[in-house]
Design a protein around this nucleic acid. Sequence first.
DNA 1: CGAGTGACCGCAA
DNA 2: ATTGCGGCCACTC
Length: 121
Amino acid sequence: MKWRPKLDELPLANLRDRVYALMSELPKDKVTTYGDLAAMSGSPRAARIVGGIAHTGPENLPWHRLVNAQGGLAVGFWGGQDAQRQLLEQDGIECDEQWRVKDFGERRWRPEWNESAIRLL
DNA sequence: CGAGTGACCGCAA
DNA sequence: ATTGCGGCCACTC
């Protein structure tokens, strides 16, 4: 079994609403990954969906603090990585020359680090 | 209602 | 270590 089945015991609401709620709870000095958001939302393999949802979602959410599993900035949107890097710097988050968030391990936001996020689930 | 899409992740070579 | 490719899941058209 390569891909584990989804946890259908979880009270799954609209993944979209969960992602938005989680993003609104995301501290501005932290970043998170698509995969983590998907896992927090109860669908560990829905990382791509999170991206699509964020793309079509409201613009007041901090999309720039979403990065891939390697801590790297996504490519090909908002006018490019430069724009995202500047947005991150506005929040006090720096990136290296490989377009990866510095101290990604420290800045990475996890559900068990934030009780309000767990309450959302 | 059905098919296509996506800002990705993980494993295999 | 790097590259390539298959696959998941909800949303949009």
